[in-house]
């Protein structure tokens, strides 16, 4: 018990003394996840919109695939990306293994299905009159699309936040393709895994608390958005 309390004391000390190493790790995590989510949204929202607002053969299958991919195990994604970018892999010559770029690729693959799947359900639920109304008021085709997205804005934000929550908290993929290199590819989650196994319990715990705070804030934001929607 003493051991745990000592860990917590050390964690609080580290956080409030604004320990440089800890905060560079936190900033790096936030940066990588933000870039990944930005790219995922750029790809996932339009794809989800197109699937959600059109009827075509195989739509149900596609939706099921994206729903299934939402639960893609992170280590499997790590494995997949690793096999492509490792020296012998097809993308080996690019030298991406154990770089932040590799981590962004992995997180992109993890977050995009979530954003696609949630965008599908967000745009499917939009009243068909939104499109008609925009058209009757003289909106251009592009403006009509942005109007529909704007009407779904709360659900879309929720989709993006859910994707962010997934990538900021995942460890398997970041570890495998990032390599947990100190000062280069170390994230909150990989650092926690390493430091804890090294016996640096306080260090791990302080990062754990910050990660928890981030995850918590994201969830509160999500909850608040859903409340506003209703």
């Amino acid at each position: 018990m003493e051991y745990i309390l000592e860990g917590i004391r050390q964690a609080v000390r580290l956080i409030f003394s604004l320990d440089r190493e800890i905060f560079s790790i936190v900033l790096f995590s936030l940066k990588i996840s933000t870039i990944s989510i930005f790219l995922s949204s750029l790809a996932g929202v339009p794809v989800g919109f197109i699937i959600g607002t059109n009827e075509f053969l195989g739509k149900k299958l596609l939706v099921t695939i994206f729903n299934t991919l939402m639960a893609f195990p992170t280590v499997v994604v790590g494995l997949l990306v690793y096999s492509f970018i490792s020296r012998q892999g097809p993308l080996g010559p690019l030298g991406l293994l154990f770089t932040p770029q590799a981590m962004v690729i992995g997180q992109f693959i993890l977050a995009t299905p979530i954003i696609v799947a949630l965008t599908i359900s967000a745009t499917q639920g939009i009243d068909p009159r939104v499109k008609l109304t925009a058209m009757t008021l003289g909106a251009s085709p592009l403006r009509t699309v942005t109007t529909i997205l704007s009407e779904a804005r709360f659900a879309l934000t929720a989709a993006v936040i859910a994707g962010f929550g997934r990538v900021i908290a995942e460890v398997g993929c970041a570890m495998m393709v990032g390599g947990n290199i100190r000062g280069y590819t170390r994230t909150m989650t990989t650092a926690i895994a390493l430091e804890t196994s090294k016996g640096e319990f306080g260090f791990g715990l302080s990062l754990g608390l910050i990660l928890l705070a981030v995850a918590f804030s994201v969830n509160i934001l999500l909850h608040w958005l859903q409340l506003r929607k209703s």
């Binding site: 009243d127 009159r129 939104v130 008609l132 109304t133 008021l137």
Partner: peptide, 25 residues
Amino acid sequence: TLILQNPLLFNTTVEGNIAYGLRVR
């Protein structure tokens, strides 16, 4: 312009709704 049988207002203010077509133009 056509006024639908059950008109839909965008989820914003009354002003935002009426100004929509003007902004578009």
